[in-house]
């Protein structure tokens, strides 16, 4: 009986690896787009509604996050946000989120654009690619499991941001009113 348990335990990591490795190549656009339902503020009249997102399909998946990393450079997100450190745009690897750091918040920030310079990419970037970018952006601030976050860079770097061990800044992903960063 104990031997059986040990054998089963040995197979346990394999189960985790399945979800991490599976590749999702296409998405049906209407169901994949949460930008119509996403809330920018935690305050809401009436009872709190649940939001359905595809978050887990992309955020537990190493392929999706590494594709997101690739797109982050190719679509020139690095032009304003650098490799997460920020520049003309806000940094993405700290704990401060002007418009919320949950997956659906990040998705709608990319899709709808935000004041003072963030362009609206909805319609120009497919929702599947926005999901991949969202997963990567959240990996930058260490919000994704480490086995999912991309582990290598094409350029020289001591240790990639999304693989850092101890986040120095406490993570608070709730949306905050403007001015209170």
């Amino acid at each position: 009986m104990r031997i059986l348990a040990v054998v089963l335990l040995l197979f346990l990591p394999a189960l985790g690896a399945c979800e991490r490795e599976s590749r999702r190549f296409s998405e049906t656009p209407p169901t994949a787009d949460p930008s119509q339902t996403v809330r920018l503020s935690p305050l809401e009249p009436g009872p709190t509604t649940r939001q359905d997102t595809l978050k887990s399909a992309y955020e537990d998946n190493a392929y999706a996050t590494s594709q997101g990393k690739r797109l982050f450079t190719q679509f020139n997100c690095v032009g304003c946000h650098a490799n997460g450190g920020g520049g003309m745009g806000p940094p993405l690897m700290d704990g401060a989120w002007l418009y919320g750091g949950e997956a659906e918040n990040v998705f709608s920030s990319i899709a709808q654009g935000r004041p003072n310079g963030m362009p609206a990419f909805g319609g120009k970037v497919s929702s599947q690619q926005i999901w991949q970018l969202t997963a990567y952006v959240r990996a930058l601030s260490g919000q994704l499991p480490k086995d999912v976050a991309p582990g290598r860079d094409d350029h020289m770097q001591r240790k990639s941001q999304e693989q850092q061990t101890d986040p120095a800044i406490p993570r608070d992903t709730r949306a905050k009113p403007a001015g209170q960063v």
Binding site: R23, F25, S26, E27, P29, Q67, R70, S126, Q128, Q129
Partner: peptide, 13 residues
Amino acid sequence: QSIKPGTLMPSNN
């Protein structure tokens, strides 16, 4: 994606 699964070209609606 049904012709060349995994290509960077996304499906277009």
